[in-house]
Design a protein around this nucleic acid. Structure first.
Lengths: 219, 219
DNA sequence: GTCTTGCCCTAACGACTGTTAGGGGGGCAG
DNA sequence: CTGCCCCCCTAACAGTCGTTAGGGCAAGAC
């Protein structure tokens, strides 16, 4: 907090670790600063949990004061919602259409699994927060996000059911298979770290294999 | 497992009211009250998260004052550790030996999966807390628990590797298969609720099937 | 009787919580 | 120059956090 004094004298507008490329120059496009702050908050939420991080901690990580956050967000919960939303929206918007695409069902499932695993790999903080801090949202916000989640899950269940009827899969209980598949796919969210034994593409490839086994596709 | 709960005279899991009827009576066996308080805390941790629950809230749910908790526990973290410990200890103590038992490897895996799923079903609060609030522990406590977790995971990985070498399984990457299997098995922890579409025994049976598929056992 | 043990109480500590009120300064448009 | 907008500031609000100090009441041991 001695840093607050120092900042005042010199570089109010200038030097932060946050988005250096954007901040140095003149007025940025509206929403940029907001996105930077969300990224900072997301990282902290991941490290310490929503209730474990205070507004002052978020502000400090962004090199501003806590009160300044309220010029960008209505409150703490808005930061959380913004952290979570990207993940669930991307799943429904980018991933789900893959199931309706061309190719055999195993091929389409392969694309879904690859995209899913890669999305986890490139949005680790947000995924972690989305997976564990949902309950911290108010009931209305909670339901709002839950709608996306259920849609994704149900679409996969129906996809597996259709594939089973067509003889491409073997899922006696498609709803349960969808749950098990999703739980498996979301697993790397807990333990994957870049620079580990497998890079994200290898991981995605192996998960495609595991997923196909799970749904009874012996191709 | 259910037997272990029954002979404790109280409600280890779930049942809410640890109430006046216990207070009025004579002295209970040492450690009993402690276990009751842990159960209350575990349930609240599950509902609102570790940082989302205060000592006063735990105390209120147990119909005592916050300060009274400190006659049973050194601090809040001790309550969390106690909530988590049961799960990880049971896994290593009760589940792991199943892999060394008699029978073919697929049979042994079946026993492990059944036991795992059923343990989740009968200790839902503790599992939820153990899965999500680990990071709230101090580093030393965290490592202490993590040792159990890694031992379980590594034992399964080696079991899958041995089974693959013996031609009973087909796991080209046993370590990854173990992770994926565990993530799938832990999934019900997030969504299983008693009284749902499947009871716990049906769920365990279906997960045995899914697990065998995952490890490439076509038996 | 006294002493101990187990369980609980009231009251308070300092630190921290999310949030608000109100002010200021820099960059750009006119 | 003035006026506007964006971003940030200091200071403070009321409330909650985990924790501690110190005392009381009932039951069993001696």
């Amino acid at each position: 907090m001695a840093g607050a004094e120092a900042d005042r004298g010199g570089s109010i507008t200038g030097v932060t670790d946050v988005g250096p490329e954007v901040l140095g120059r003149g007025p940025t496009r509206a929403g940029t600063r907001r996105a930077e702050l969300v990224a900072v908050a997301t990282r902290l939420f991941r490290e310490r949990g929503y209730h474990g991080v205070g507004m002052r901690a978020i502000a400090e990580a962004a090199h501003i004061q806590a009160a300044s956050l309220y010029h960008h967000f209505a409150g703490k919960e808005e930061l959380l919602l913004e952290s979570i939303y990207v993940v669930d929206r991307d799943l429904v918007v980018d991933q789900l259409p893959l199931l309706e695409g061309s190719g055999t069902r195993p091929e389409r499932l392969q694309e879904l699994v690859e995209g899913h695993v890669r999305h986890i790999g490139t949005n680790r903080d947000a995924w972690w927060v989305a997976g564990r801090e949902l309950r911290a949202l108010s009931p209305e916000r909670f339901d709002e996000v839950q709608v996306y989640r259920r849609r994704y899950q149900h679409a996969i269940a129906e996809f597996l059911a259709a594939g089973t009827a067509a003889g491409e899969f073997d899922c006696p209980d498609p709803r349960l298979s969808a749950l098990a598949l999703l739980d498996m796919l979301n697993g790397p969210n807990e333990w994957y770290e870049p620079g580990g034994r497998l890079d994200i593409d290898e991981l995605a490839a192996r998960y495609v294999d595991l997923a196909l086994r799970l749904v009874g596709c012996c191709a």
